[in-house]
Structures are given as C-alpha cells and as structure tokens.
Amino acid sequence: MDELDLLKKDWKKNEPQFPKISEQEIYAMLHKKSSSIVKWIFIISIIEFIALNSLSFLLPNDFDSKLGWVETFVRYSDYVSYAVAAFFIYLFYKNFQSISSTSTTKKLMESILRTRKTVTYYIFFNIAYVFLAGLLIIGSQVKLLLIDTHQEMKVVVGASLLLLVFLLVILLIVWLFYRLIYGFLLRRLHKNYEELKKIDL
C-alpha cells in the first residue's frame, strides 16, 4: 500500500472529530464580510481610477495663448483621456464580472489576473500621457521663457527641473503602488498560477 492510501484510510476515520457548526452559526457567517482578494483588487482599482483621473486636474490648464498647439494638444487630449478612461472602466467591469468561484481554478486565476492587468495598462497609459504632456509643457515653457520673455537661463533651468522632479515623483508613487499590489496582494495567487501552468506544460 502506498503512502497516500495509508493516509486515505486514516482520513476517513477522522471525520467525526471535526467541530460541528450549527445552522445559527452558518446564518451568522453569511452576513459577515468577505476578505477575498477579489474584493481588495476591486477597491484598490477603483481608488486608482479615481486617483489617476484627479491627477489630470493637477496639470495646468490656463495656458498662455502664445503656447498655440501645446494648448490645443492638452485641451483635446483631455477629451481623449476621458474616453480612454471610460473604455478601461468598461473593460475592468467586464473582467470583474467574469470572476467566478465556480470556474475551474485555472480560469478563476486567469480572470483575476486579467482584471488586474486592465488596471495596470490603464496606469501605464496614464504615465505615458502625463510624461508626454509634461515634456511638451516643459518644452514650450522653455521656449516661452527663453525666446519670448528673455528670462534668465537659471530660472528656466530651475523651472524645468522642478517639473521633471514632479513627474519622477508621480512615477515613483505609481511604481510603489504596483509593487505593493503584485508583491503583497497577488504574490500567492501568482505563485499558484505558475505552479498550475507548470503542471500543464
């Protein structure tokens, strides 16, 4: 008899030793809060969507009309970014809906990871957008200050550096958030998913 069959023999004998949970206790459990990772992913993703959308208000909107095409770019890209946000939120919602505890373990893991990926892509899109907009604004400010208002070089360089630092800080925060989610929230899930994939190689 192999080891597992020995265990199986014993496994069945142990059933009566389990605690008996009463119907009242089960009723009480039904109304308790779940601590599933899906709930956490949902909450964190919503916070990210809100945070990223409020970020766009931080970008200066009152440009000098001399900025011309930069101003036009920033104004229209605002509409584009709202459309993109709406699209991502729709995808997120659809992915979230597809998470079901009655799927196979592998499918369940895939749908959770896909939901999370949607939010990550949205974050990447926003970083790229903020970076591009930031660079354009820096560039146009430099032009404005140097050529049009003949500011001192020191001031121009200082202002540009400040903007760059601001962009880098945003990037750092986003990156830390990303690490937090993948490290803290999804580590176990990722590990188990890899394990399951390995079996089916």
């Binding site: 601590s35 599933s36 990772i37 899906v38 956490w40 505890s101 009655t102 799927s103 373990t105 369940l108 893991m109 959770i112 929230l185 899930l189 188990n192």
Partner: peptide, 8 residues
C-alpha cells in the same frame, strides 16, 4: 478555489 485563490 477559495482556499487556493480567493482567500487572503
């Protein structure tokens, strides 16, 4: 599924 995936 809860034990492997969902439970934190």
């Amino acid at each position: 599924n809860t034990a492997i995936t969902l439970y934190r």
